[in-house]
């Protein structure tokens, strides 16, 4: 956050460089597996950045965001399967549905503090999952309960949001991630951002100053849910098959929150850093250790969580931005000299 807040030339150059490398990456990496790993890293960075609007800036801890991932996925897919509406349009519809649910659930819960809010969001997400599992048919839509939805393979088609190669998915999610980061950047500098920052730390004090914290928290919640749902549609189109437990399960909700806390919540780069640490740890330990001793990879994952929190309770963004600042200062000095 710090290294982007006072944007110097070096920082700009660095950011442009990183972006250029990321956009050029598919030229060098052709393995679909590596691309898939990157796509999932970006997806989780995207979901966590969306989460950050409410989990970071509004100062509460939502632990049920997979509900909104699921709402996005289900809305766009049901529209596509029933009326053949392009998932690109369905994506926006899913976002609106999720934002509406976000407001509905946020209205009573956002005034709760800490653990109460966290547990309320868990209950909401689990309740919604159970609800979807119990619904076979909703009006014209075949929800298919626990059996889930399968999107038929139609081959490369932009309109159908389906590609045989991983490269288009890579660019779509990377662009979505960049856009959400830019949005975060501007939000932090907007009135809403300042009010939220004030309200997140000292809600009573902010209220006393006449800031309607709850109103801005609701706005943040709606934005967050909207964005999260877009990620849900992307996820659905990427895997083409999902069911309530796979897309609205608590595991995903937890993982989003872990990434934010490990990376550093209420910072712009925290979710990205967190995703770049936790996703590969999860994937690589599973790939290389998953078949040796059952569960060993999850033990390591758990240990990583404990160790990072033990030594960097504010997340990795602090030490990383410190190193970067030292690096930039040196470059700056050399340039002047």
């Amino acid at each position: 956050m710090k290294f982007l807040s006072n944007v110097q030339t070096t920082h700009k150059v660095f950011a442009a460089l990183v972006l250029a490398v990321l956009y050029a990456l598919p030229i060098f990496i052709t393995s679909p597996v590596m691309l898939q790993i990157f796509i999932l890293i970006f997806l989780y960075a995207y979901l966590t950045s969306s989460w950050n609007f409410v989990g970071g800036f509004a100062g509460v801890l939502p632990l049920g965001h997979s509900a909104f991932v699921g709402l996005g996925a289900y809305t766009s897919t049901l529209l596509y399967l029933t009326y053949n509406i392009s998932p690109w349009i369905g994506m926006i519809a899913g976002g609106i549905v999720a934002a509406a649910f976000g407001l509905l659930i946020g209205l009573p819960t956002l005034k709760l503090r800490g653990a109460y809010f966290a547990l309320a969001t868990i209950a909401f997400a689990e309740g919604l999952r159970v609800l979807v599992e119990n619904v076979e048919k909703l009006g014209p839509f075949e929800v298919r309960g626990p059996k889930g939805l399968l999107i038929n393979l139609v081959g490369n088609s932009f309109k159908d949001f389906q590609f045989l190669s991983k490269v288009p998915y890579y660019y779509i999610i990377l662009t979505m991630l960049v856009l959400v980061l830019i949005l975060t950047f501007f939000m932090m500098r907007s009135k809403v951002g300042y009010y939220l920052a004030a309200g997140g730390e000292e809600p009573e004090a902010a209220e006393a100053l006449g800031i309607k914290v709850s109103k801005y928290k609701l706005i943040a919640m709606a934005i967050s849910c909207f964005l999260t749902a877009l990620g849900g549609t992307f996820y659905a189109q990427l895997v083409l098959y999902f069911y309530p437990k796979s897309i609205m399960g608590l595991d995903m909700s937890y993982e989003i929150a872990f990434i934010a806390l490990i990376g550093g919540r209420s910072t712009i780069m925290g979710p990205v850093l967190g995703a770049f640490l936790l996703r590969p740890v999860g994937e690589l330990t599973r790939i290389y250790l998953g078949d040796t001793l059952p569960g060993l990879h999850l033990i390591i994952f758990g240990l990583v969580l404990i160790i990072v929190m033990r030594y960097q309770p504010r997340g990795l963004v602090e030490p990383v931005s410190r190193w970067l600042n030292i690096l930039f200062d040196r470059i700056e000095k050399r340039r002047r000299a």
């Binding site: 490990i262 758990g302 969580l305 929190m309």
Partner: peptide, 8 residues
């Protein structure tokens, strides 16, 4: 997060 790590 730490207690979740312990859980895993």
């Amino acid at each position: 997060i730490v207690t979740t790590g312990i859980w895993y």
